[in-house]
Design a protein around this nucleic acid. Structure first.
Length: 114
DNA sequence: CACCGATGTCCAA
DNA sequence: TTGGACATCGGTG
């Protein structure tokens, strides 16, 4: 057993979690914007942090989408029931996805609201 | 230490 | 306009 270091996260993931928390309900963020928000130049690093997501149901990773308006992935799956579930959660928040893409790109939180 | 990973951006056809 | 390849940062094994 390796110690219960399941909650062992780096300041980077904490920043991602914090930036995600700053996203108002009914709004989504892109990996690139989120990465930039945490002070990172790579969008992949953010996706990785979310993929590992030590705070699975605690972090609204379903609010994170790709800049291409594509849902990206969810729970480590880039397609399948996970994506359907993600779209369903967003739909409940008022975010509609059409043709597998975000219906309103204006719903993307740019962090300019603050 | 090396490889992978839920993206993004650019170039070519 | 669409598709493919490459670049980049961080985490985990």
């Amino acid at each position: 057993m390796r110690k219960a270091n399941h909650l062992r996260i780096t300041p980077f993931q904490a920043g991602v979690y914090r930036a995600l928390s700053a996203v108002p309900l009914g709004r989504v963020v892109t990996y690139g914007t989120l990465a930039r928000r945490v002070g990172c130049a790579s969008c992949r690093a953010v996706g990785q942090a979310l993929r590992r997501n030590p705070f699975a149901p605690k972090v609204p990773c379903h609010r994170v989408i790709a800049s291409d308006l594509t849902p990206g992935g969810f729970m480590g799956c880039t397609g399948g029931a996970a994506l359907a579930w993600k779209l369903r959660l967003l739909k409940k928040e008022g975010v509609i996805f059409i043709n597998g893409k975000l219906a309103d790109g204006r719903r993307i939180w740019r962090g300019d609201s603050v």
